[in-house]
Amino acid sequence: MRLFYLIIICFISNLLPCTVQADVQILRLGIINERKNEPDYMLKLYRDLVQQLNQGLQAQQLKIELVTVSDQTALIEQVRAGQLALIMESTFSGLKLKQEANMQPFLLGWRKGLREYHSVFFTKQDSDIQQINDLKGKTIAFESLRSTSAYALPTAYLTQAGFQILPQGTAINTQEAIQYLLAGDEQTQAYWVVLGKAQAGAFNNGDWQKLPETLRNKLRIFAQTPDILRWLVLLNENMAAAHKTVLTQAFLDLSNTTKGQAALKASLIDHFEALTETDFANLEKAEQLIQFIPEN
């Protein structure tokens, strides 16, 4: 009888390692879909990146699955529900998740060639706007409500400076408020300013450099916001430290391989790097600005 029990125990003990080895932990990466009319845009954008990350995580029985959500609210809800382990977002959006869903920034990403950026306020060359105070009673063109550099940062900056920012047509005292329009994209912001649909516009300094020269020559920058980090990777603060380490290493290793570099490029990201103290200080300043972002 003892021999029988021993055999059973040995059999079960042989099966246990197999079961443990097959138990890969899924880490869901949440991303907001930037293009509403292209539901799979972000999936395609980060598919190669996730695949390369999983290559690095395979040995640690970790696997990242990409999850797209429609907006920041949905993202916060899913983080709170424990369905998302990590997030990739801009500074303002990430800091919002930190505040409301305990997500912790642990890596920064160079995106579109920028490690950090700031928003510039521009107007036509022949405009009488010389400083942000001149924006009173004027209409400014932003990209979209979820844009960090073309909405959140400039509106927070202006609000912090004491201006009232309202959607066009909602201001009662149009001479005191700054009304805004959403152009949908940075170029349209600039065109609208040139064509007079708006008197000023704001987006990040990278987009300014990308404007066509003919267009840019008709504009001038009259103010800018402080710099903020361009792109953040945030982790659930409850994630195991070992996982954090493994993930950190996996993100950092992407730029070490050709395939990883190609995947980064396909994701409009240059590379990831660890946050420095300065970066954290910058994030603290940015957190202060967030409170000035107008509620929509």
């Binding site: 994209d185 170029q187 649909k197």
Partner: peptide
């Protein structure tokens, strides 16, 4: 709507 970006 003068959406130049979209036009492009």
């Amino acid at each position: 709507q003068t959406q130049v970006g979209l036009l492009n």
